[in-house]
Design a protein around this nucleic acid. Sequence first.
DNA 1: CCCGCGCTTGCACAGCCGTGCAAACTTTCA
DNA 2: TGAAAGTTTGCACGGCTGTGCAAGCGCGGG
Lengths: 365, 365
Amino acid sequence: MGGGEGKVTARKISGDARAEGAGQGGAKSVSAKDVAALAGVSRAAVSRTFTPGASVSAETRRKVLEAADALGYQVNHLARGLTRQQTGIVALIVAKLATPYRSAMVQALTGKLQAAGKVAMIINTDQEEATVELALRQALSYRADAAVILSGMPDRSIADLCHRNGQRLVLINRDDSLPGSIQLRVNDAQAGRMALLAFLRAGCRRLAVATSCDDTPSLLARERSFLEEARTLGLDVQCERFGASGYDSGLALGERLLVRPERPDAVFCTTDLIACGVMDAARQRFGLSIPADLSVIGFDDIPQAGWEAYQLTTFTQPIEETASAAVDWIARGENGDVPCRVDLTATMRWRRSVRARQAEAAPAG
Amino acid sequence: MGGGEGKVTARKISGDARAEGAGQGGAKSVSAKDVAALAGVSRAAVSRTFTPGASVSAETRRKVLEAADALGYQVNHLARGLTRQQTGIVALIVAKLATPYRSAMVQALTGKLQAAGKVAMIINTDQEEATVELALRQALSYRADAAVILSGMPDRSIADLCHRNGQRLVLINRDDSLPGSIQLRVNDAQAGRMALLAFLRAGCRRLAVATSCDDTPSLLARERSFLEEARTLGLDVQCERFGASGYDSGLALGERLLVRPERPDAVFCTTDLIACGVMDAARQRFGLSIPADLSVIGFDDIPQAGWEAYQLTTFTQPIEETASAAVDWIARGENGDVPCRVDLTATMRWRRSVRARQAEAAPAG
DNA sequence: CCCGCGCTTGCACAGCCGTGCAAACTTTCA
DNA sequence: TGAAAGTTTGCACGGCTGTGCAAGCGCGGG
């Protein structure tokens, strides 16, 4: 095993591989060693060529790049992540990804992460077995730099585990505050109050809330703030709760609400999907017209809310801002252990699902 | 420290690690070495404990698991991927993730990949700079076991690169066949013909196609098969093409088509989103009623197609089957270099956007 | 009592990369 | 021309894991 040139690992790789990669199986990927052998330099030279700011002569660099190109070499980020503390991987923990709001958020996050030189790994918690805890452990095992939690809520002990392992946590609209994490929140409570006021100004009197059985903090905050504001003003509100927060639930909620003797003339839906269902129930099954007979306000401003068939007045989620805040915090890195909190605002988006102000002044006017 | 039933005191460790972590950054995660030290065994014993089928005594195993639990140890998948040939990472290359069809597909893929012990990495090609080539190189640099291409089409040379590096390719509805890859296709062409026949049976005579300027193979196949079948039968079809394949384009397409003197009474839309736009244009801007005045058929069967406001007759994408086929092929591994192709069928889903058969017999019998 | 056998366990190396350090080389200046 | 300064390069190690190999250990059988 002398230092003789018998160590030719990359036996005419260039020619062979170039000619036809279909040699056989070939599950082995090319490494820096192969490139070094082909270029006739040391492996360190290869490494330095791909490390910005390292000292390599132009000639060596050229040879290395040439060989790398011929072999199709890509630096192994996994091995690089071993020595560096950064893998560049960010785990996105999410359930019901196919939902319009969720998918828009994931799209924004993946795009911005990529622009920041990171890469997103999706961990799906749709199956019951896949709890948030399991998801976080998986993220940990891939040494993700950070994990973004879009669904569910991690146990405090698991969060500690992440923190101890140097994995930072981004909580989007979760209500607990954890060490070494950032919390991104939207003004759900304020939105609930604004919705109520909007209905009152429009002259609506028989108010209702349609929401799901999911106990997501955001949904609860929207519902509660609406109800509380109403109670403060001495108004009664019918509240109906059913199923998951999707279109079908909205349909069912609409039927339940509109069949009542005291038929509501305004429904605040905690989700746009629910709102679309309620609107369809009102129109198709009760022959009501919107906003003349029924005013509806939703939340999220999903694309469908802007469709001609709905023209739903709603609250626009600050998706881009949220994603930017998350990615900035992740990319910034190293900001100590103090939990950080960022508040973002969902702004009201007026369309045509709330009737115009009535002649008579609203009490809250 | 003798090994005499060392009941590991979790509290002490945790406290220690906590303190250290809080000291500064604490980006270091716990490794097998740490666990070995705490458990009083060799590092190899730790490794074996977490390797199914390896030889470890019950006693050692217990000590290791206890220590691992106390420290919150997770096997480093990245380092494991170094020695094994498998990283367990599968790259999903996708643009416009927020689209209903795409997000549903990604949800299905991530779920099934996870169930198969893999994990999905999302590479977003929305930005112009992020071409499919770049995406594949990134996948390569993370040593993904496979890459699933949902958008765009890789150059042949890049595909060769992947192949040479042992990265397998899954092409979903792409038209090129590449070495070491699997191609999943849907019967777009058949669907186009079926749509035409459905219109004819319903007694429609003034046929039209609404599609986008995207040159996705699937969309082209749907459009062309519809047009060709019509020509075969000696029928004339108006074809309008505009923008990207989203709702807004559908709205615009509807306006362009319906303003014509020869107003169509049937429109085949190559996408459900386009179909929803066309329907809304017809109803809101031209006061038409569907299906009495206009029949519409879409493609994809996105959730909105089933909403009360649309009740769109369309073709159901075999999303679950496609995802299963992809994941099965990926998990199966090692199936030689011969390109593989799987054909799946999108089945027609009848709803209420095509009018019932007219009394007079359609020419196509 | 001794030997062989099976189970455990530790050593050491491989897998891939980045980087400190020292040696070798090039360039510049006196 | 010689020396000093600066640049480039290779060696070797560290980061984390899996695993072949051989040694250690306990145990049953002759």
